[in-house]
Amino acid sequence: MLVDSHCHLDYLKRDGRDLDEVVAAAMRSDIGTLVTICTKVSEFDTIREIAETHDRVWCSVGIHPHEAESEPPVDAARLIELAKHPKVVGIGETGLDYFYEHSPREAQKASFRAHIEASRETGLPLIVHTREADEDTVAILEDEMGKGAFPGVIHCFTSSRWLAERCVDMGMAISISGILTFKTAEDLRATVEGLPLDALLVETDAPFLAPVPKRGKQNEPAFVVHTAQRLAELKGVTPEELAQATTDNFFRLFSKTARPQEAV
């Protein structure tokens, strides 16, 4: 069994996809658990409803750095309150994006720290988006770790080896998307090859970033098998060993979830 640790089922629904079929296709590909990610607290009700409707789908609550200024102000207390729902298993996605800079950097940083506080207080993993912001991301994470530890994952990792190693040293996971399979991703593959297997997760970030051989199609959770296969080759393990390791890593980090055999 594999886990798609990060997808956006609400985006697929918005695009007219039948989520019952999307989830069923994932299950047929032995993707036993999905986490659909919140990017706007103002749309959290939709995210929560999707998770409530599908037994093997969980969700997060948070504000993407792109939305840090446009979303109504949300503090840690509000995130903590929303995270009490039994299907909410993570805080985010949050973080810093200096590539697009759709929100001012200071707004992104303030939102990031509010999410970290919520993660620390709830014990739910922080789901971090970082792009072209390695130094500030690490500085904030290390500063906040000094106030008290919290679990977390760098999602859709494409950053430097330096950032990956610093985050692993902090006890954070690194989640690998379909970008790993792209022809141009040689530097990423070289970095991931050197990371410990017990720190790795896999994800689709669907509907974005469909892996080879699905490039050009809308990404969906079932396609995470292709990323996992390429990651297994890179790490020198069998697909079964890779699936076992990344699934164990997921349930250790996202400890509020239940494995399929544990679900009631």
Results as ranks from 00 to 15, higher is better:
84 K>S: 10
123 G>W: 13
147 K>L: 15
110 A>P: 05
59 C>W: 09
73 P>I: 05
73 P>R: 10
115 H>V: 11
61 V>I: 12
107 A>G: 03
98 Y>E: 02
154 I>V: 14
136 D>W: 10
126 L>E: 01
61 V>P: 01
89 V>E: 07
135 E>W: 06
78 R>W: 00
164 A>G: 00
114 A>D: 12
82 L>Y: 06
93 E>S: 02
105 R>W: 08
115 H>A: 05
100 Y>S: 04
92 G>F: 04
141 L>M: 14
139 A>M: 12
92 G>L: 13
139 A>E: 12
144 E>C: 15
147 K>P: 07
130 T>H: 03
158 T>S: 10
162 W>F: 01
118 A>D: 11
162 W>Y: 02
149 A>M: 09
60 S>F: 12
82 L>S: 00
87 K>S: 00
155 H>N: 01
63 I>V: 14
145 M>V: 10
127 I>L: 11
109 K>N: 04
166 R>H: 03
83 A>V: 14
85 H>R: 07
129 H>S: 07
152 G>L: 15
59 C>A: 08
69 E>C: 06
103 S>P: 10
164 A>F: 01
60 S>Y: 12
144 E>F: 07
112 F>M: 11
65 P>K: 10
134 D>S: 06
79 L>K: 07
77 A>E: 13
61 V>Y: 02
149 A>S: 14
162 W>L: 06
86 P>F: 05
72 P>V: 13
170 M>V: 05
148 G>M: 15
74 V>R: 14
163 L>S: 01
76 A>Q: 08
150 F>V: 07
121 E>S: 11
109 K>S: 02
106 E>M: 08
89 V>W: 06
104 P>Y: 03
145 M>Q: 11
76 A>K: 07
171 G>R: 03
76 A>P: 01
159 S>L: 07
109 K>F: 03
102 H>M: 13
123 G>R: 12
123 G>N: 11
87 K>M: 03
144 E>T: 06
106 E>V: 05
69 E>F: 08
